[in-house]
Nucleic acid binder design. Sequence first.
DNA 1: GTAGGGTTAG
Length: 637
Amino acid sequence: MLDMFAKGGGDIHSARMVFDKMRDRNLVTWTLMITRFAQLGLLSDAVDLFCSMLLCGHTPDGFTLTSLLSGSVDMGWFSLGKQFHSWVIRSGLASDVCVGCTLVDLYAKCAAVGSVENSRKVFDSMPLHNVMSWTALISGYVQGRKEQEAMKLFCNMLHGRVAPNCFTFSSVLKACATLPDFSFGKELHGQTIKLGLSAINCVGNSLINMYARSGRTDCARKAFDILFEKNLISHSTDIDANAKELDSEESFNHDTEHTAIGASSFTYACLLSGAACLGTIGKGEQIHALVVKSGFGTDLCINNALISMYSKCGNKEAALQVFNDMGHRNVITWTSIISALAKHGFATEALELFHEMLEIGAKPNEVTYIAVLSACSHVGLIDEAWKHFNSMHYDHGISPRMDHYACMVDLLGRSGLLLEAVEFIRSMPFDADALVWRTFLGSCRVHRNTKLGEHAAKMILEREPHDPATYILLSNLYASEGRWDDVAAIRKCMKQKKMMKETGYSWIEVNNQMHKFHVGDTSHPQAKKIYDELDELALKIKNLGYVPNTDFVLHDVEDEQKDHYLFQHSEKIAVAFALISTPKPKPIRVFKNLRVCGDCHTAMKYISIVSGREIVVRDAYRFHHMKDGKCSCNDYW
DNA sequence: GTAGGGTTAG
């Protein structure tokens, strides 16, 4: 009866009333009540009950502790989870398999209390491993961005003859999405099809995510269609049967609410984030239409994903539209829109929204502050940034993390206060990591301070000896000073160490098709026409006063030839291609995987005049809206 | 009566 109340519709209060009236309560009664409270996220009540239970002289068992631990994990109350861990050790429950698994999960999920290593310790101390403990540990490594390690564990798991289930595949596929070698992901996809798991929501979503993020939108779409079809059959027996055959302990939770009408909201969120990554606004809009048609138009997660999709695809207005139409918002919503505005160069608006957010009583989190600080950094609002940096701790109890310090270093460095930035790094309460120094090195490049740049590079290489980005930044710094011997030395060193640098490329969507260009690319069917257009553009903008800035050519060649190299940059090629293949009032949206080059930035401003077109460039750092010879970044970037 | 996954924020 107690469980009926507790489970049926989650009427925990009726359950509590029954519980309070009971004369005889045994261990199961207490545990049942604690479990239900913990599952509903009412953790304080669960803990209260736990205390009362102890006072009544009952000794909790593995079930009780598993429920409390899992509740702590779900709520993110890791310090509480840690206290229960001590309790587990003291009461000799550490050998309980369920408790062990949950502990592995606890430490896998909390970066603050420890790291994956703590999860590993618990894992190693267990005499036997099952799907659960393996999966929990693997997911910890995936979350900690140690994908290689996760894949190794997965192999060990198979060696140990433990069969993976849909949760395992879900985690491992996520790891595959980031691996350079794609064959592993394909292989796993095959496995999930064989096992009949590919159409189960969590696996299907990971597959979609993996394909979408690596640019294989066709495969993503196929995986999506299969998922969609299968889910329409809702609770089809064959899925369950296959799943049960694989692991008889399993029963899969289909979310009934959503399966009846199609894919779950997460599926759409996956697809949207894939579209956002690629910057394909055409696909993004299609998914948006699908979302509305499937009745997910008011889903919070999806709307958040929509904001970020539109923003990342260069359409700030559409992002704002979604934001304004939302009836219900959470921190992620606010953070998304703030960072969207910041990236598009509308820092004042971003900060206004932040104040609005505080006024209505929404609580910012650490990511919100990253968005706020980066908004300040994008326009050089130093005092404002200091104000927020100090207030995040005092007013909201959020202590600045490494990322926040990196934001401040970026802000100081970018605005030319290099010495202040170094001083700030020295004053940090913990040792600056490679990210912080890399940020600083970037500033040294902008302000051409070779001495400080060399120091920064040294610091980075002490921490991450094989970071190609550092070598590239340093070599660019030398190149801009004409120190070609040093450039050559670095290149040689990189070659010896077999370090790969990500090559720069730009892409653009025309008539729902993606076109990708590398430096000096002549592989496009219309290459001849594109280069003719480039020549013409070069003449026109030089007449308007454009002077090529050869600092950005990183080869040791004569000046005249340098001009020539500049006009082969992938972003210029993409713009020229857009000009000859799209009609006039349409804005041109170019995407680049690295930072846009300074000379291209200048040239594009002139091109926006001679062509009368708006050019939007998304690079690895931010957006540039160029119109009538001006850029939304005000040349501060 | 216990446990694991997918998404959105930098």
